[in-house]
Nucleic acid binder design. Sequence first.
DNA 1: CCCCTAACGGAACAGGAGTCCCGTTATGAG
DNA 2: CTCATAACGGGACTCCTGTTCCGTTAGGGG
Lengths: 203, 203
Amino acid sequence: MSPEAPEPGTVRPGGRTARVRTAVLRAAGDTLAERGFAHLDLADVAHRAGVGKTTVYRRWGTVTGLVADLLVDMAEQSLPRTETGSLLGDLKANARLVQRTLSDPRQGALFKAIIAAATCDPRTAEALHRFYDTRIREWAPCVQQAVDRGELPRGTDAHEVVRAVSAPLYYSLLAGGGPLDEAAADRAAQAAAAAARAGVYVR
Amino acid sequence: MSPEAPEPGTVRPGGRTARVRTAVLRAAGDTLAERGFAHLDLADVAHRAGVGKTTVYRRWGTVTGLVADLLVDMAEQSLPRTETGSLLGDLKANARLVQRTLSDPRQGALFKAIIAAATCDPRTAEALHRFYDTRIREWAPCVQQAVDRGELPRGTDAHEVVRAVSAPLYYSLLAGGGPLDEAAADRAAQAAAAAARAGVYVR
DNA sequence: CCCCTAACGGAACAGGAGTCCCGTTATGAG
DNA sequence: CTCATAACGGGACTCCTGTTCCGTTAGGGG
């Protein structure tokens, strides 16, 4: 993201730099959620963060660059999954977590903006992939446990199952078609479980 | 879309106006696929279309407005679905159609750009919803036929099943995770069929 | 075929996003 | 504590996106 890598001297990630990063990323998230990707002005972000405009342009350069860094930050704060003991219970918990996130006005708008940014820039897309990878890795074990318990066929691709839970919820967010409520979340979980039991995700 | 509705005089949708619209929408699709949503300049679109810059700004105003009109145009040209006689065959045909569209460099990039535009503007989002609605309405009958044949439980929501086929393919396009090949298309179709057979989409 | 005017086109204009320059602050090594 | 310098901040500057003005072209009713 930073335009030029500092070669000669020492890097200084201490105090001020970290504080600026935190403030800017926070302001970026807020502004992105409110105004959306298209109407985002880096000068506005800088003003909100109480930081010089030049600083934002120097460290992140573009809107997509800023979003990419925001995603790295978001991936670091992954919440632990809950365990219910059954495959369907775990998948429903995951589905409802995603559903609540996307339904929330701020978070939903933020994700829309992030997705928009990712479609416009390869680096940001890569950051988004890594973000989802982190989330999926967190939830995959509950599928693997179901395989071990004999609830699902051997060789089931755990990651594919977890992705299958999220997919219809994101589709609702972006393409419309039905409200994004708990019923939709439960349907997503049940559909993924049914397909997995039928052996669709055996690799 | 048009900034102001002409009230007093007569509207003239004839010859020249239609020609300009066609040329501009074509140029918009090309430019959108090549440069993406973020780096789209309406002046560039106008130049490609061999049309005055002022005309584009007057009729469409913004990038999102132009994309919205492009979606109306795309929805009008919906291709007829194929019929294979079995539920899984029909769903696979649908899945592969979507997969081929999204895999194609031009079409894939175009859809990414359109989705980005839709996340930035409510009107464009509405146009995108209508577009998918058109497509889903086209394919829903094959699910309904399966219900009538007794392949699926009564009361199955045909639209939900069709959406379930597309969802994972769009998820792959936007969030990554696995190649967007024929195997992925077949998996999407099989998963939707399995979930539908299990009664997940009974309303 | 003629005329009114909807719609288009060129060019000048204005506003704002992003860049550059240079002085100031504060980090962290010695 | 001191100093070299990484990192920040303010403000002027540039260029490009979008607007406005007005003259020109062509659709379609009479």
